[in-house]
Amino acid sequence: MTAAWSAEELDRIGAAEELDLASVRADETLRPYVTMWVVRAGDDVYVRSAYGPDNPWYRRATASGMGRVRAGGVERDVTFAHAAPDVHGEIDKAYHAKYDRYGPAIVGSVVGAKAVPVTIQLLPR
C-alpha cells in the first residue's frame, strides 16, 4: 500500500532545487545517492532521466522499483512508478517553470516526447 505525500512534504520537495535519489539493491541496502532535478505536478512528484533509459541511476531505479529520496529537508522511502500518460504536459510545464533559467539546451534534456518514457513518479511508502 502506498502512503500519500503530506502538503508540507509536497511544498518542500517542490521548492527544492534538487533531489537525491538512491535505489535499493537486491540485498535491500541503498545504493549511493544521485542528485537530479525534481518537479511537483499537482500532488505528485516526478524525476526524469536527462540522459535517457541507459542512464545508470535510471536503470537501477526501474529494476529495483524502490528507494529513498531526500529533498528540501524531507527524506522518505519511495516506490518508483511509471507516470500516467495524461500528466506529461503538466510535468513539462513544471520543469520549464522551475528550471528554464538554465537555458533551453539543459531543460530540453528533460522535457518533450523523448522524456516521457524516462519519467518516474515517486510514491511515498
Rank of each mutant, 00 (worst) to 15 (best):
T2N: 09
P32G: 08
A81V: 07
L19N: 11
R125Q: 06
G72V: 07
R68T: 10
L19W: 04
I120S: 01
G112S: 06
A71K: 14
V118F: 01
V45S: 04
W5R: 05
T62I: 05
V110A: 06
F80K: 05
A71I: 14
R31I: 05
T35N: 04
W5N: 04
E75G: 15
V110E: 06
Y102Q: 08
P104Q: 13
A22F: 08
S49P: 01
A83I: 07
I91Y: 02
P104N: 10
Y99D: 03
A16I: 05
A105N: 12
E28K: 15
T35A: 03
A41L: 04
V87E: 11
L21E: 02
V47P: 00
D86C: 07
R70Q: 15
A63V: 06
D54W: 01
L123K: 02
W37Q: 00
L30Y: 08
V118R: 01
Y58S: 03
R70V: 15
T35H: 04
D77Q: 15
E75N: 15
W37S: 00
T62P: 00
V118W: 01
G65K: 03
E17C: 07
A63S: 13
T119L: 01
R101W: 15
M66E: 14
G103T: 12
A97Y: 08
G67T: 10
A4T: 11
V110P: 04
Y58M: 01
V107G: 08
G89Q: 05
R68C: 03
S109N: 12
R60V: 07
Q121E: 14
A7F: 06
A63P: 08
H88S: 03
I91P: 02
S109A: 12
R12K: 15
P53K: 08
N55S: 09
A4H: 09
H96P: 08
L21I: 12
V74H: 15
R31M: 07
K114S: 10
D100W: 11
D100K: 10
L19Q: 08
P56H: 07
T29A: 07
A83W: 03
T35F: 00
G65H: 06
R68Y: 05
G42P: 07
A97M: 06
